[in-house]
Design a protein around this nucleic acid. Structure first.
Lengths: 335, 335
DNA sequence: CGGCGAGGTTAACACGATTTAACGAAACGG
DNA sequence: CCGTTTCGTTAAATCGTGTTAACCTCGCCG
């Protein structure tokens, strides 16, 4: 069955194709009566415009591409929700791709977005894709970075203040009387980890008493948390930490599980603070204190920033928004 | 800056545009030496083909669209991973949309996929979109249903055997000596829930002794689990269940949390079985027994099925694949 | 030496919607 | 009554690639 086209609609409505196009894209230019006739014809034929043709002629694709770092991590799906919130209002489709932290997947999606001549792209980069992003921009696709910043600062970005996050978590542990704090997470070449760790160290130092140890992991999932906890439990009792600061909630949940299974009381023996405040943090057997990252807000902010750049790529300044995290205290640090 | 086109590449390589097109799409038709010259020109200019033009001319969009029911549910992100696994190998981009169980979002994505003339669509429908799907198919877009089946059976589908899932979970609870089993989940008009509940009832009946109560919830998240558990705890001790079968792991985690906080011992006082075996099930403080759904396999199967239909829409029969779930026993049912 | 076939290349058109410039008709004022 | 403006409509050109049928150039064989 042949699919209805503009000229079919035009024929049925008794006007020319150009008028149909005007009706769809510039309704003000068409008289109300013909507008109604055209709409009726569209409904009758079930006409749906061919977006490829529209795109080719218009030279622009209204869709926004997003490369998510890890779709299995609730933090990033929350970010995506925030982006959707904004784009839906603008009637712009969101094309989401999952790089799963693999550079070749990331490249794949960038290729796709480049071929599609997208209006804009949001990305949390895995590999070094700066040159790719520059090329995208040169071709007319606006780019905003999410949860990452480049040194050169040539692209707008939205990040969350990790220095503050590390500080408030550590200060909280110190305030409830803990002195031997262990930080679990990694790898340390992630700027997020670096910042959280550094500010945790600074907080301990500023406090005067207490000490901070660091247990680096390769990944940040529950397995890493379990392994890290086991390692700490192997220490002689006097050396054992009385508080653990996990680099994210997945790690914290792993830690919590390992401690529980070994009969260590949380928070009495060991307090735990996580990071991200994913849904599961509050659903844990012992609800987890966590540094809440405004993930959804980050998504909506990034989308808004991107729309601004798209609206006027030349004029708009490069802008870096830093959002503030917030400590959510729950049972795991307040026996 | 003007973007390089086929004719620019052709000019630089000293051939005609048609030859460049042949080099890209039918390399066998072009001599190796000119092929090399063209490739060099492409690299030098950084040429990237305009997919809108390709699509318009070819009348087909290689991308596959997927409408995910709830991107915040790890079960569905696992399904998506399975789909990706297959499509990546075929060099077909996956365009993922999240309906978040809202009909208007679902419609939005279907509109998009229809305008884009996608080759294929995978969907876990929320609302009644059968007529939309039929129209898609009539326009040449193949459709495969994921985790759902229509009564009319006009579309291929992949589902998981919920009857079996309900049975094995219940039999397991009976085997470890539990007799008062409560099923928590809903809404009951979901065929999944209906099947799991019915087969749980059947299993209890077949066993001869024991009873099954049903606590319906409106949604299936941790909050619903917490609320349900509170309700059960309010019962007089003799009426309290000694086992809970939760309709999914999110509910089960909520139940586990509520019980733990109230000092109920799991599994000694109450055993818990969940459903889905999401990552967090094994990471819970008390690792959760759960009916594992082969989510990733479901995704890859659906994708494979879809590719088959796309390859030959006329010849291929409508096919329904039912995958078998598997019971994973952990601490929550094996003190 | 002429005809033939194969492989490689080319020119021209097609895809479906949008835009531009031109056009006709109605409305208006002098 | 005629010239001008306004509004709605139209024919034709355009976007960048893929395909088709024709074409050219060799090399080969009779």
């Amino acid at each position: 069955m042949r699919v209805a086209q503009v000229r079919d609609v035009a024929a049925l409505a008794g006007v020319s194709p150009a008028t149909v196009s005007n009706a769809l894209n510039h309704p003000a230019k068409v008289s109300p009566t013909t507008l109604a006739r055209i709409q009726a014809a569209i409904d009758e034929l079930g006409y749906i415009r061919n977006d490829a043709a529209r795109q080719l002629r218009a030279g622009t694709n209204r869709a926004i591409g997003m490369v998510v770092l890890d779709i299995a991590n609730p933090f990033f799906t929350d970010v995506a929700r925030g982006v959707e919130d904004v784009l839906l209002g603008e009637r712009r489709p969101l094309i989401m791709g999952n790089s799963a932290q693999e550079p070749h997947r990331e490249t794949n999606y960038l290729d796709l977005f480049e071929q599609q001549r997208m209006d804009g792209v949001l990305i949390t980069p895995v590999a070094d894709v700066l040159d790719r992003l520059r090329r995208l921009r040169d071709r007319g696709t606006s780019v905003v970075l999410v949860d990452r910043m480049t040194r050169a600062k040539e692209f707008s970005s939205v990040t969350i203040d990790d220095t503050m996050g590390g500080r408030i978590a550590t200060e909280h542990l110190l305030e409830i009387g803990r002195r031997r704090i262990a930080f679990i997470g990694g790898p340390v070449n992630l700027s997020q980890i670096k910042d959280r760790l550094a500010s945790a160290r600074a907080a301990v130092e500023a406090h005067g008493s207490g000490e901070l140890s660091f247990l680096e992991t390769e990944t940040m999932n529950a397995d890493a948390g379990r392994a890290g906890a086991e390692q700490l439990l192997a220490l002689p009792t006097t050396k054992r930490p009385d508080a653990i600061f996990a680099a994210n909630d997945l790690v914290a949940l792993g830690v919590l599980q390992a401690l529980t299974l070994r009969g260590v009381r949380v928070p009495d023996d060991v307090a735990i603070v996580g990071y991200d405040d994913i849904d599961f943090a509050s659903s844990a057997a012992i609800p987890l204190s966590s540094v809440r990252q405004p993930a959804r807000t980050m998504g909506s902010t990034a989308a808004t920033l991107l729309l601004g750049v798209i609206a006027d790529p030349a004029a708009s300044e490069v802008e870096h928004v830093t959002l503030k995290p917030e400590l959510i205290v729950r049972r795991s640090t307040s026996g």
